[in-house]
């Protein structure tokens, strides 16, 4: 589904991503864990085309997408839930969801997916005429996820979905991530909350200062001494 090969990303002189390779297979939940500044968001933004790599390639179903403008990548079946949610605060919940389906022309399919999103997030349906800026943090996260789902993605990138949420909501969000995955969407998840991320992930990679230092199944990494010391609090 998604394959990252020898990716290098620079901000001016600083090399933020130093030659990383990983892949996400059909139907998986894969997570990248790592501390602040490890390069997680940079990796995500490079995959979705917002940043251009210095070298290396990102293959989506075999096509190198590093030269494709980001608004076209969405139409190829890759949607991103950005860090900090970034919902359109001045537009209603409904308008936000409609924007998620911006590139699509299939009216019936859009209506169908809108129904599915409301089924997944009943709270959004209750608040559909409200401005997105007036929602709580958890609701905004749900809206950002629902909005990405409206693009009918084959693979969904999620950047720190649990950031700033209460433990109860974090659980809820991770339950929904599993739900989305079971309904057929492949997920690439970036998280600082390593414990929760490893619990839902099929496979995981550890990113440290721009390099992948460890990889394995979610359970393997959760059991690894190194990961437990660095990310799981002993």
């Amino acid at each position: 589904m998604l394959k990252v090969e020898n990716l290098v990303v620079r901000y001016g002189m600083i090399e933020a991503i130093k030659n990383i390779s990983f892949e996400v297979r059909d139907g998986e939940i894969v997570t990248l864990i790592g501390a602040n500044g490890a390069g997680k968001t940079t990796t995500m933004q490079t995959i979705s085309g917002l940043l251009k790599p210095a070298s290396g390639a990102v293959y989506l179903d075999g096509t190198d997408i590093t030269k494709i403008p980001p608004h076209k990548i969405v139409t190829m079946g890759l949607a991103q839930v950005p860090e900090g949610r970034r919902v359109f605060a001045q537009q209603t919940v409904l308008e936000n969801l409609e924007l998620g389906a911006y590139y699509r022309k299939d009216k019936n399919g859009i209506a169908e997916d809108m129904k599915n999103v409301f089924e997944l997030f009943p709270r959004l349906e209750e608040r559909k005429t409200q401005l997105a800026g007036t929602l709580s943090g958890g609701e905004q996260q749900m809206l950002a996820m629902g909005r990405a789902l409206m693009a009918k993605p084959k693979i969904m990138l999620m950047d720190e979905p649990s950031m700033g949420l209460s433990p109860l909501l974090v659980k809820e969000i991770f339950r929904i991530i599993e739900d989305i995955n079971q309904r057929g969407t492949t997920v690439l998840l970036v998280e600082q909350n390593a414990k929760m991320a490893l619990a839902v992930a099929d496979r995981a990679y550890v990113l440290e200062t721009g390099k992948i230092t460890l990889e394995g199944t979610g359970a393997e990494l959760a059991a690894s001494e190194q990961v437990r010391k660095a990310y799981l609090g002993g």
Binding site: G49, T75, Q80, L99, G100, Y102, Y103
Partner: peptide, 13 residues
């Protein structure tokens, strides 16, 4: 409101 987020919706900014 947010060009970066708009691009992620498939909008050609």
């Amino acid at each position: 409101e947010d060009k970066g987020a708009a691009v992620l919706m498939g909008i050609n900014v």
